[in-house]
Amino acid sequence: MTTLEARATPHNSLADVTVLMPAYNAQADVERTLASFDEPATVRVIIVDDGSVPPIVAPELPNVAVDILRMPKNGGIERALEAGIEALAARGCKYAARIDAGDLAAPGRLFKQRAYLEAHPNVAGVGMWTQVVSLEGKPLFLLKPAAAPEDVRRLRFFRTQLVHPAMMLRVDAVRAVGSYRATYKAAEDLDLFVRLMERYDCANLPELGLYYEINEGGISATKRRRQVVSTLKLQLRYFSALNVYDWLGLLKNLLHLVTPYTLLQRMKAALFAKRA
């Protein structure tokens, strides 16, 4: 593995940013995702290959520098992300920009998020609006979470406020709160965000940053019940009786336990279509 330069210069304002992408048996998706980045400087990427067979190969793309961290065996996204964060910390990388194989980045996403974090030192993570699309690329609905940290914190259990693959995170802040962990299976992102918001702020830029592909073979589909149960455990662990949105979020996730996944996706699409 080569060492990525982590010190920003006037000629490369993304030198302290690295895209963190876990991947498992997804070579074509990895190539498509990395090809979507359109930034004013070199995009640095670390792919955490979580035991793929055959192993993920780094694509050769203009203005994209790719390293691969290979896990000895498939251990799950939580361990892959934790290993990725530790690798970035060892290199002195300041910011980790998340994205998943199969998703596409909007132009200038990294540049905008880094500028926001540089201007807001108490913000540990910043997300962006996300266009949800089908596997065929058909727009389904647009996620427009709250921008202000106080709103993100207040609504954290009611509706998705921080879309994980659209986030840029401070590496030191992630490590300070215990990094990614497998305590809440399939909800490792919400677990991290809740812990971050106990010590820092999290926010969103109110503009499009990501095209998120709904994959029926992804975590949200294949491990949905586990994800909902883990989310409910997190809600109970951090529940605030004075926050009406915590009550509403609890009710919402109880309903998710008995709602078929396909029906839930149709309901979401109909809801967001009315707001568009």
Rank of each mutant, 00 (worst) to 15 (best):
Y24R: 08
A270F: 11
L14Q: 13
F193G: 03
Y95D: 12
L61I: 03
A35F: 04
R237V: 00
Q131F: 03
D172L: 13
D50P: 03
P22I: 01
W247G: 11
G92C: 01
E150S: 08
A106K: 09
T2K: 05
R181V: 02
V126W: 05
V132P: 10
P54S: 03
P55I: 03
N253A: 01
L169N: 04
P40H: 08
N12L: 00
F157C: 03
A221C: 12
A106L: 06
M167Y: 02
G127L: 15
H120K: 09
D50W: 02
N243A: 06
T2L: 05
N25L: 03
N25R: 13
Y211S: 03
T3S: 11
N243S: 08
R195E: 06
L135H: 04
A182V: 05
H256A: 09
E86M: 14
R275H: 06
L117C: 03
A269K: 07
A124D: 10
K94Y: 00
A35K: 12
N215T: 13
P145D: 09
F193T: 06
D50T: 00
P54M: 04
P59H: 11
P107G: 01
G51D: 10
L142N: 12
F141P: 14
T160H: 08
T33K: 06
D246S: 02
Y200E: 14
L117P: 12
A28M: 03
T259P: 15
E207G: 09
